[in-house]
Nucleic acid binder design. Structure first.
Lengths: 190, 190
DNA sequence: ACACAATGAATGAATATTCATTCTTTAAGA
DNA sequence: TCTTAAAGAATGAATATTCATTCATTGTGT
């Protein structure tokens, strides 16, 4: 009956928005500049997204899904150390291959222009991790501390490693990643 | 309304800019809104600062000085563990009492609108920390790894702890701060 | 009286968003 | 199979707003 809104074009706009937001942040990115990056007309953005804020919200949700597809939490057939290894490696490699995606997610967990509904999605992250850590604690492998404390330290170390690599103060070799993993493990293990 | 430029007014503008930038970021903060927050006229900002970029640069340098006044690196009359304790405690307590200041510093180390000269100041941070860690390594107390790797992990853990406290997932009790300190130490110690 | 700080309205450029108009696709009717 | 009209996607110029910056004027301490 009519030309159909293509999912492909929607993704092209989301990916373009990610690149522009990455460079200049939310307020520094104009809709026309995102349209240009996506090679569509300015108005087309408004066919696919209600406004700039909705675009940022949908981008966040889109990236969160990509994140979840990459970052593995393992299962309880593994030893605690193996599960930790699985999470660490997948998280770090995601950060290396999807820097803009991870930076956007981290920067926007608490951004004021994300809607309540989107913020709720941010909490699911915490839930996944908390369950993961709870398992390791119950298995007696990890310190019996507040899950949030363990979580903050663990995520802090992963992001700390990624930052020094992103800023080219450290080579992203498997050896360096493994050394950092062992340090992180020693921080949280019993 | 004196005909003499007052340092006090300059600081009032810097502090106002910090609050507004904290809320909305660089591109999201207008000069008129900063003027309003500082309770001066728009034009007055331009008496004290060449333009918006210069304001951000001077704010960064101003905050870096405050940071340095608070965060203590100890000296080599202390044991390695004592030195680490000193740094950890002063860093975390700075983050608790000066959240906006620390967030601005962390967010802007690599911001594109900071001038080369200002970026050089950012490197002095790394130098201070590197020397600190080098000492602990030479004393045989800390793993003999890349100083940047140690640095990234350590700063990551401190910021990770602060984030969960800032977002009210953990109480900022001395007990929690001490537990995190011990975890951080176990990550880097031999 | 003078020097210069302080002001805030004025300026022009940039921005988010709208909308009248022009395609493009689809499928009903012949 | 061919024609054609409805549906709605795509467009980009137009609009209203906001922004960084300027400057003519006013205020104030020396």
């Amino acid at each position: 009956m009519s030309p159909v809104k293509s999912e492909e074009k929607r993704f092209r706009i989301l990916e373009a928005a990610l690149r522009v937001f990455s460079d200049k942040g939310y307020y520094g990115s104009s809709i026309p500049s995102i349209a240009k990056e996506a090679e569509v007309a300015t108005g087309t953005i408004y066919v696919y997204f209600k406004d700039k804020q909705a675009l940022a919200n949908e981008l966040y949700l889109y990236l969160r899904d990509i994140f979840r597809q990459h970052v593995k939490l393992g299962d309880d057939r593994m030893t605690p150390r193996e599960r930790f290894h699985t999470l660490w490696q997948s998280y770090i490699h995601f950060g290396l291959s999807h820097r803009m995606e991870l930076e956007f997610i981290e920067d926007h967990h608490h951004a004021p222009y994300l809607e309540k509904e989107t913020q709720k999605a941010a909490f699911e992250f915490l839930n996944d991790y908390s369950k993961f850590l709870e398992n390791l604690v119950k298995a007696g492998a990890v310190k019996n501390e507040s899950l949030f404390l363990l979580l903050g330290m663990m995520e802090g170390m992963a992001l700390g490693l990624l930052h020094i690599i992103w800023h080219e103060h450290l080579e992203p070799t498997e050896e360096n990643i493994a050394k950092a993993e062992q340090m992180a493990w020693e921080a949280i293990r019993i």
